[in-house]
Structures are given as C-alpha cells and as structure tokens.
Amino acid sequence: MSYKVDEIDNKRVVHLNGEIDMEVSDKARNTILPLIEAGHEVQINLSKVDYMDSSGISVLIESKKLSEQKKTKFELIEVSKPVEKVLAMARKFL
C-alpha cells in the first residue's frame, strides 16, 4: 500500500493505493488517525484500492468514530468497486 496526502485549507485528502490488509492496516491507521486527532476534515480517496479486508474496514470504522468524537468531518470518496463490495457487506457496522 502507498499513499499521499493533499492539503486543502483545513481539509486533508488521503489517497490510498493498492491492497489494504492486516500487513499494512497499521500504516493506514497511523496515517489517517493523527489527521483527525489534529482536527482536520478528512477525505479518504479509495479509487485506487483494489482489495480491502476487515483490517482496512476496521481502520475506517475507527476513523469515523474518532471524527465523531472530535466533531470533524470524515468521508470516503471515489470508492473502487472491490472496496464498495466489502463496504456493502460491512454496512451493518458502519
């Protein structure tokens, strides 16, 4: 997995790329959570993520919960089809 972060005023757009599984989920977590913790509005661009398992979904759930606590905006944008399918299965948890 690779990533880049765009900064637009108080917004941070995190572009994730590749496969997100248990091996790399901490890297994703350590990229996203500090941005939310710092009070930024965070968008996650998932257009180039071709595989995501429960570890990746867990990072998204944690991010959403933290953004609710911090009262900041958190959203997923340009969700790829493979991720959309997994999100659909996990929708009960999101």
């Binding site: 429960s54 979904i57 867990s58 299965m89």
Partner: peptide, 9 residues
Amino acid sequence: KPGGLGTFF
C-alpha cells in the same frame, strides 16, 4: 467496535 468483522465476512 472494530474487530470480529473477518468472521462475519
């Protein structure tokens, strides 16, 4: 809470 999703899938 995160976790346990894998078994659900």
